[in-house]
């Protein structure tokens, strides 16, 4: 079934792109390999304006309050948060590992920068993910062209600016083809 296009409401502030929120959670007690990633990932909904974003986000649980093995994904409308999507298959991501307690603030700063077009890399951004794990949390931002070093450099510099991270934070760039080979 074709999805209805989301449009800004009257008087609302449109975003440069429409976005979709997704959520995934690994069922406890079963190894990941027996489950299809696509089956576990659920669409929460889409938005086209600043005000529509807040209506979703204000009702969502903060990443720091999630338990277990869970992820929030925020991707441009039409891009699935998976390596196999056409927009992602030549791409890569910046990964930042966070000690417990930082995820909620960092995730909010990351997605506000993405929605507000702070990265200045044209059409390159695909989406962002926050992954809640047992001992640490991980945030990442995905872009289309892993081989484009000017773009990945600019994304890294913007991340440093908007996330206000401790100076010793390690940032790692990983291409999706690497992730497929070595998950």
């Amino acid at each position: 079934a074709k999805k209805k296009m989301v449009v800004p409401g009257p008087g609302e502030h449109p975003l440069q792109y429409n976005y979709t929120f997704w959520y995934s959670r690994r069922t406890p007690g079963r190894p990941a390999s027996t489950q299809s990633y696509e089956q576990n990932i659920k669409q929460i909904g889409g938005f086209a304006s600043v005000e529509q974003f807040w209506r979703f986000y204000s009702h969502m649980i903060r990443p720091g309050d999630l338990t277990g093995h869970s992820d929030f994904h925020l991707f441009k409308e039409g891009i699935k948060p998976m390596w196999e999507d056409d927009a992602n298959k030549m791409g890569g991501k910046w990964i930042i590992r966070l000690r417990k307690g930082l995820a909620s603030r960092c995730w909010e700063n990351l997605i506000l920068a993405m929605l507000g077009e702070q990265f200045m890399v044209g059409e390159e951004i695909c989406g962002a993910v926050v992954s809640v794990r047992f001992q640490e949390d991980i945030i990442s931002i995905w872009n289309k062209t892993a081989s484009d070093q000017a773009t990945s450099g600019r994304i890294r510099d913007t991340l440093r600016r908007v996330l206000n991270l401790p100076p010793n934070t390690i940032m790692e760039y990983k291409t999706h083809t690497d992730s497929i080979k070595r998950p």
Binding site: G9, L15, Q52, L112, E117, Q118
Partner: peptide, 21 residues
């Protein structure tokens, strides 16, 4: 064309606007 750019403060200020409720 022109890009729609918003800084963090602008976005946060829209959080409690009546339209967003």
């Amino acid at each position: 064309g022109t890009r729609i750019i918003y800084d963090r403060k602008f976005l946060l200020d829209r959080r409690n606007s009546p339209i967003a409720q």
